[in-house]
């Protein structure tokens, strides 16, 4: 008994220490985002704040042109999210509900896609994107090509995320009784109807969990935007944060404030949908 109390106290101390260590940079960022640059540069980063101000936030908002870049982010995020879930749920439906010669091969192909590092395909992808002309569509295509267009970004997100989504959804769909399909087939439901009206509604918990995870992943994307978008106006919000740094001079407090503004939506989504987040982490883990 005594040993278990002692070990519990030890565990608590250990955990509190770790939490504290993890929080130092985050707390540091929050505090410095409220401090003027002149103060941290003269007193040092680890000093007691004298002045607290919101001017870094208003400065970051204006200099970062954040409303515009948020619009860009959501113009990419919303269609990408729907398309990923739509396409991968169809593949998952096919490979999990029907036995077909290439089921395993197809599933493996999608799962293997997860293992491919994004960086490895960037040069051929850039060259391909550069050669695909698109008609100019205000906001979505300003470059006249797939490269530099938001449509190009949407496509690559759909391509890269569908591997993981297919894997998770097919595992989830496998847990649904086969009889559902058989009964609906007897009732004369078409293949589309079985997918759309029988299986998809039952997959809702997995879809909700995936949607929250995918929201965070696509929202936080930095790599694709930096590699594929050349026009500063068309950058999504995470990559547009760079525009707060200058040639020689970067106000770190301004960048801290900008970063806090940018992470706000993901933190908000996490707080609102944390149940789905946690479900998302274990979705498909057991049958």
């Amino acid at each position: 008994m005594i040993t278990s109390v002692r070990s519990r106290v030890f565990a608590q101390i250990f955990l509190i220490t770790i939490v504290f260590l993890w929080m130092i940079p985050i707390i540091g960022m929050i505090i410095s985002s409220f401090r003027p640059y002149s103060e941290t540069s003269s007193d040092g980063f680890f000093s007691w704040p004298d002045t607290l101000t919101l001017s870094n936030f208003s400065g970051a908002w204006e200099r970062g042109d954040m409303l515009r870049h948020w619009l860009v982010t959501f113009a990419v995020l919303v269609p990408a999210l729907f398309l990923v879930l739509f396409f991968s749920s169809m593949v998952a439906f096919a490979v999990s509900r029907y036995s077909w010669k290439f089921n395993i091969a197809l599933l493996m192909l999608f799962t293997a896609g997860n293992l491919l590092p994004q960086q490895s395909i960037i040069i051929p992808l850039f060259e391909i994107y550069n050669r695909v002309p698109l008609p100019e569509i205000p906001f979505l295509v300003n470059s006249g090509e797939l490269r530099g267009s938001l449509i190009g970004l949407i496509l690559i997100h759909v391509a890269f995320q569908s591997g993981f989504c297919t894997f998770v959804l097919s595992n989830y769909m496998k847990t649904l009784p086969k009889e559902l399909n058989e009964a609906s087939m007897v009732d004369g439901a078409s293949l589309w109807r079985q997918y759309w009206q029988i299986i998809l509604p039952l997959t809702r918990p997995a879809l909700a969990a995936l949607a929250t995870l995918e929201f965070a992943w696509i929202y936080n994307d930095y790599f694709w935007a930096v590699a594929l978008i050349q026009n500063g106006n068309d950058l999504p919000i995470t990559s547009s944060l760079r525009n707060l740094s200058g040639e020689f001079f970067t106000d770190d407090n301004l960048v801290a404030a900008g970063s806090l503004i940018v992470v706000a939506p993901t933190v908000l989504i996490y707080i609102l949908l944390r149940k789905q987040f946690i479900a998302g982490l274990s979705v498909g883990a057991n049958k």
Binding site: F126, R147, G232, D234, R242
Partner: peptide, 23 residues
């Protein structure tokens, strides 16, 4: 139509920017 990119990214990405030919 003017667009801004941060100084260091612009410098590092100049090859891509020239290839893109957007500006």
């Amino acid at each position: 139509t003017l667009n801004f990119l941060d100084h260091n990214t612009f410098q590092e990405n100049i090859t891509n920017i020239l290839k893109a030919g957007e500006d």
